[in-house]
């Protein structure tokens, strides 16, 4: 895949996803990702932030009915592709850093093949090249003794190590886009910081665009240039990170920022997003659903 460097690495146009019972997971979601850019997707549980990442990678739960919209990877519309071509196109251009490193590695297979297999079988590299690349990246993510680790099984390694291995595996084929799905949530607080640092370093070195799913505004401030705030599958606000923190337009975004605990504000009581604001947003969502279904039935 040596296409001309396209203007946008990822473009999502009016994406909708609906469950068979009519529940809407994503509502007209549109966003773009420039090359080398990190965009954070924030929102509370069920806001649809992980769903966007899954939609891009083609791993939405089987129950989801894809109603409308399109996803473009470097200008290539995924809708236009047949499932098989779509799968290999997405796999060659993008990668995933999963949420839970303890369940994301196959317990009965050694680490080495779990990194090199996709390189050899999907990206068609030679075994030697894949192995060299795996060792090189393991070293880059500060794994001591990579030669030993590639011959280890996942249960012989710690959670932090496994997450670093998964990061190495994600960056190994030099993808244009990485979806990081809350990659620090399942980890120890002390390890979280190192992992975040590592993803940021590798991202800068390689210039890979990253779609960073998180619910932690503190993480957002550290890693991203752009932020998309989601509520109930709807984009509430889409702005540069700096603007979001200095001057958020939507009251919900301001609520989220205010609710983030900061180390120097220990005296301040914890301030959650106000209940009446959430209730208002839920009413808006329901009203929109009513309009959507009445319009759709005609």
């Amino acid at each position: 895949m040596t296409t001309q460097p396209h203007e946008k690495t990822l473009e999502i146009r009016q994406l909708n996803a609906t469950l068979p019972n009519g529940m809407r997971l994503l509502r007209d979601v549109s966003l773009t990702l420039e090359p080398g850019e990190v965009r954070a997707l924030v929102g509370e549980s069920g806001a649809g932030k992980s769903m966007i990442g899954r939609a891009v990678l083609g791993i939405l739960p089987s129950a989801v009915v894809h109603s409308s919209g399109d996803i473009l990877l470097e200008g290539q519309s995924l809708n236009a592709l047949r499932p098989k071509t779509r799968r290999s196109t997405v796999a060659k251009m993008s990668a995933l850093i999963p949420q839970d490193p303890l369940t994301a590695l196959n317990p009965v297979r050694k680490i080495g093949p779990q990194i090199t297999d996709p390189l050899v079988r999907i990206h068609r590299w030679s075994r030697d090249r894949a192995l060299k690349r795996a060792l090189e990246l393991l070293e880059r993510v500060h794994i001591r003794n990579p030669e030993r680790v590639i011959n280890s099984y996942p249960h012989e390694l710690s959670g932090g190590m496994r997450q670093r291995i998964l990061i190495a595996a994600a960056f190994a084929p030099s993808p244009r886009l990485i979806v990081a799905d809350e990659p620090t949530t399942a980890l120890d607080v002390t390890v979280q910081k190192q992992i975040l640092q590592l993803i940021r370093e590798l991202q800068r070195e390689t210039g890979t665009a990253v779609l960073f799913v998180t619910h932690d505004m503190g993480v957002v401030a550290k890693i991203s240039q752009k932020v998309t705030v989601l509520f109930a599958g709807r984009v509430l606000e889409d702005a540069p990170t700096e603007a979001i923190f200095n001057d958020a337009t939507h009251p919900y975004t301001r609520g989220l920022i205010a609710a983030t605990p900061t180390p120097n504000a220990t005296a301040e009581p914890f301030r959650p997003v106000p209940q009446d604001l959430i209730a208002q947003l839920q009413r808006d969502t329901q009203a929109e659903d009513m309009r959507f279904y009445q319009g759709g039935r005609k």
Partner: peptide, 22 residues
């Protein structure tokens, strides 16, 4: 339904290959 099979799909392996290998 495990995460490592999902990851294998993301990496471009076909469903049959995911079943047999992972």
């Amino acid at each position: 339904n495990q995460d490592y099979t999902t990851l294998a799909r993301v990496r471009g392996f076909s469903e049959t290959s995911v079943i047999l290998r992972e």
